[in-house]
Structure formats: structure tokens, C-alpha cells
Design a protein around this nucleic acid. Sequence first.
DNA 1: ACTGGCACTCTCGGGCTTCGACTGCTTACC
DNA 2: GGTAAGCAGTCGAAGCCCGAGAGTGCCAGT
Lengths: 337, 337
Amino acid sequence: MLDERKATILRAVVTEYIETAQPVGSGHVASSAEVNVSSATVRNDMAALEAEGYLAQPHTSAGRIPTEKGYRFFVDQLGGPGKLGVNESQQVRTFFSRTHGEMEQMLSDTSRLLSSLTHYAAVVVGPQHEVATIKSVQLVGLSPRLVLVVLVLSSGAIEKHSIELAADADDLIVNAAAVRLSTLITGQTLASASSIDSHSLDLGESVDVAVILRAALTVLGGEHRHDDQVFIGGTSDMIASFDAVRTVSEILRILEQQLVVVSLLEDVLGRGLSVAIGRETGNEALADCSIVVAPYVVDGETAGSIGVLGPTRMHYDQALSAVAVVANRLGRTLSEG
Amino acid sequence: MLDERKATILRAVVTEYIETAQPVGSGHVASSAEVNVSSATVRNDMAALEAEGYLAQPHTSAGRIPTEKGYRFFVDQLGGPGKLGVNESQQVRTFFSRTHGEMEQMLSDTSRLLSSLTHYAAVVVGPQHEVATIKSVQLVGLSPRLVLVVLVLSSGAIEKHSIELAADADDLIVNAAAVRLSTLITGQTLASASSIDSHSLDLGESVDVAVILRAALTVLGGEHRHDDQVFIGGTSDMIASFDAVRTVSEILRILEQQLVVVSLLEDVLGRGLSVAIGRETGNEALADCSIVVAPYVVDGETAGSIGVLGPTRMHYDQALSAVAVVANRLGRTLSEG
DNA sequence: ACTGGCACTCTCGGGCTTCGACTGCTTACC
DNA sequence: GGTAAGCAGTCGAAGCCCGAGAGTGCCAGT
């Protein structure tokens, strides 16, 4: 629908606007290396591009800036992610050669890596607990009526939930419950563990033990969806791309709500996209932002996702490749562990 | 050193400047309720106040704005924290009546509470692990060579560290080590546990067990200082008080480094202050910011600290009382648990 | 189908003026 | 001596004008 020349011109406008943040005039486009026609011709094409919704003019006699549709075309025609610069890929290599163990630490560091690669805000969403199996369960009595349920998952993640009892429970009872619980749910996923019918098990148990067991199972079924681990880094880098404090404040408000951020990424991935531009993000407050996402795969399963949040005029090629490379390496590194 | 009238005038200037963010002229001060002299007299006193370093002029023929020394006087003469508004204290009451269990969740919610009370950024530093005793230790083998050490502390906090072994270890060995480790360090503090001489214990143990034990103890001594829990909330609220993106970016850069934030609070508390104004914070990037801090006390011991970060022209009285009240209630609530 | 040319538009920045909010000083009063 | 009143002076902010510059759209010519 866009002939070759128009596409080239659009590409040139987007590229230069990303670089300078200034409206781009026909003269600049004409003098760019890829375009070999005069500025008058460019003008005609730009007028057409504007009519078709790819470009917009802040006012007459200003240059053009890309619309969301313009960015979308630009991103689509980029094809896949490009290659990283030598410095960047070096940085990634050394990062992943050094890192190991401690998943939480690693994800947090990954978000720092990604933001330092792109100079935008980086979001790393940890593996879903749903797919992980329970490696170990422990009940720890903190005070007579307060018991902590500590789960270690196969991913190395830890979940804890406290349960409050109506009556005091002594250590013997807690331990008995712990043993029973352990045989019941070790090896299962969180989902299957929490779906255990708590009434099918009170036969043969002491009442006190049964109470604790039931409470523990209930709490597992709770909102563990909530404590997905999210790591956000580089917000201070990103906001330097904006010039209105107002905008910045709104963006930060979004980032503070980690739940929102997670569902934002998942939503974008769910639509089969790797880039969401402006309103495509589905969030009005992010009208001036774009998101680049990629899932990462651990042991053949999609485990979590990573993403970058920057201005709509972001360096898409760099962001795409950084996200792709980091997602890939992260998945591989986690698979080994 | 400041006579009564000058103090009143200074107070009036600071109050109005905090409200309006505009330089305050002698006319405004003279028309304020507390001042009963003419603007000419005010002018004379303001000139004196400027000479003494309490006020500054952006340029001739502009009003005065407070210097750090001016704010300092203002804060000092406030005396202790005032009282909270009815809405605010209601908010605090309902918050603490609802909250319970899960320390981590609670601290995180507290930071949200504090920022919503003050509209500035709130920092909550969790209890030092140093004072907590170890309630339970567990070793979980994630893979043949990777073992996770999971500690539950009396505070309800959880520490985990992974250790990598040079050789495969089967579950029996890991379990043996777990039992031994548990008898060794349960009931101790982290500090005393990590100071156990790892060479005094390899008598009578199998070599494999000893290896794991030693690795576990070493890892305890590590940098657990680092994972102090820090919860920061309300940054988006706070930045609305500033008008240069540049400043905002620098402040966020500080807040991203949680270690820095913690030592910032501790440093201020260490100097016996509850308010640090501008450069008093000891951080050049926070020249336009002030910090209000208070420690909170759990079971008679200073456990952690909470604080608020806002612009130098912050509402000190509100911030002081919010911080004081929340610190108090938080300590009491944690003591019960 | 391009291109060169031209008239037109609109922003941006400098220079100018006016306005207003201040101050400092001087003088008068109690 | 402390307070008030008045007055001249200062300086930024806002408004205005104008010219420069960067763009555009359109038309006519190749």
C-alpha cells in the first residue's frame, strides 16, 4: 500500500525524528542518503503520507512528525531485531558469564543490565509460580498463634504466607502438620496443591493438625498470583527522554503499580506483539510511551517476560535487539541452573 | 539571637513560600495576621534576616526566599511534631487496625500509607536482621550441585542463599547437613551464627556434610547487610513538587540505589536529627530536597527507620507528625506480632 | 513523473516597552 | 531608637513587533 519511495521517506522521517525530537522537513529528508529525489517531490509524498495517517504536522509550516501508525509501519518493516553493537554485546556476554545462583538477585541485575543497554526503563517479570513444583514445605511457629508457611519452589523462588490460628498451637502439633503437609504437596505445583480438597484429609488426624493443614492449604490457593516478582530498573534514565514533569509523574504512577506493569506486558504478549506503541499499550497515561517485550523460555516452557519502556520516539532497533538478546540469554542461563 | 518580631517574620516568609513557591515580598508579610507592623518595618527586618543568612533574594526587586538556614530555624522552632488532621489520623487508625501478619507486606503498605499522608516519597527500612534470631534453617537441593539455604528469622523475615558445590551431593547428605546446621544455629542471631568457626566442627562428620556446612556458614557471614528490606513509595507524588525534569531524574537516580537511601536515613539519624534540609542530607543531588526521619521501636529496641523525602519547601509540620505517628504505630504493631 | 520556483504561513528569537512587584533609603513622627 | 510613610530605583515578566528561517502547497515547465 506504500510504494517503495514513500516507505523510504517515512523511514527517513522516523529515523531523524527519533534522533532529534524535532519535526522533520522535506529538505532534511531530501538530503538524506537513501532519498534521491528533490525536496519538492518529497513534499508531495509527505503530504500523501499525512493524508494516509502516517505523519502529522504540529502546525502548518512545520516539519512532520510520525503518528503511531507511522511508528508502527517503521517497526514492522524493521523485520526482526537487528544486531547489538560490539560494546553492548560484550556487556551482555560478561554479565551472563558472571551471573549465577540466586534467581531473585539475577532478575534484579538483569533489569539493571537491560536499562543500561537501552537507557530506558527495564521490566523483568519473574517466572510464574504456577509452573514450578514445590520442593519443600515448612511450617515455622513465630508465636503461639502465628505460623509461617514457607515454600521452596523448584525455580528457587520462595513463597511465604502467615496464617493466624484461633487457638494456641504447640510445636509438636505444628511439626506434625508440617510432616503431613510435606508428604501431601511436595512435588506438586502450587495450583494442584491448592486444589486439594481440604475435607478429604481430616480423617485420622488430630483436630489441631487438621486445622493447621486446612489453613495452610487455603492460604496457598490465595492470591499468590500477586507476588509475581517484578523488577524495574532505569526509570531515571528513561524520564530524561521526556520534558514535562507532568508526563513523567503519570508514567511513574503506572510503574509504581507493579500489578499493572505485569498485566501490561502480558497483554501485549497476549496480542502476539513484541512492540506496543503509544495507545497500543492500552493505557492512556502511556500515550507517549512504547513498550518492547519478549518472553523468555526456561526448559522449553515460557517462564516470564522482560520488557523495555521508553518514549514513543525510542530507538526501536536497539531496544528490540537488546530485549531479544537478553531474553534469550536469560532463558538459557536459567535453564542450566 | 533573633528577636521575637524577626522570628515571626521569618516564620511568615517560610510558611508562605512553602505554600506558593514564589518569592515573598514585604507587603505580603505585613498583611499576614501574625505581623502587625508596616511593610517598611518588615523590609528593614528582612534586610537584616538576609544579612544574617536566613533569607535570600533571587534578584533585586524580587521577594525573599528562605535559605537552608532559614528552613532550619523554622523547623527547630516548630518544636516537636504537631498533630495530624482528622482525616489523616483516621486513615492511620484504619490502616493499623486492618493490617496484620506478613511483615514484608506490611512494611510495603506502610510506605504507601506514609506517602499518601504526605504526598511525598516515603521510605520504610525494615528491621535489621542482626537483632533477629534464627527460627529455622533448611537446606533444599535444587539440583545436584545447587543447594538453597533458607532461614526463617524470628522477625518473620526470610533469607535465602544459594551455594554451589564442587561435587554432586545426594539428598541424604544434604539432609544430614540440614539437621546438623539446625542444631548448630537455631536460636542464634545471624551475626553469631556466621562467626562460628567452621573448622571447629568437622570432627566426626562425614566429609561431604562438612563441606556443605562450611559453605552454608560462610554464606551467612556474607553480605546479608545488603538485603535490608527497603520499601519506597509515592515517588510519583513527590516529583510533582519539582519543575525541572533534570532534578527529578537525579533524585530518582538516588532512590534507585536502595543502599544509598538506607545509609542516608541512618546517617541523618546518626547525627541525632529528625530533619535534614537540602545539603544537610549529605548528598549534593538532594540539594533541593529535605528528609524527615524517625526510628521505630519494636520490643524496646530500635528496629528500623521510616522517612519522607520531599522538596526543601515541604510541609514540615505535616511531614513530621505523619512520620512520628506512623513510626509509633508501626513499632507498636510489630511488637504485638 | 519530477523538479524548480514562488508565494505564503507560522514559529522562534531578539529587541523594545510597559507594568508591576519589589527593595532601599531618606525623612518624619512618637 | 524604633516605627511608619513616601519615593526613587531596579529588575523580571509579559506583551508586542519585526525579521529571519524553515517549512509548506501549488503551479508550470521539462
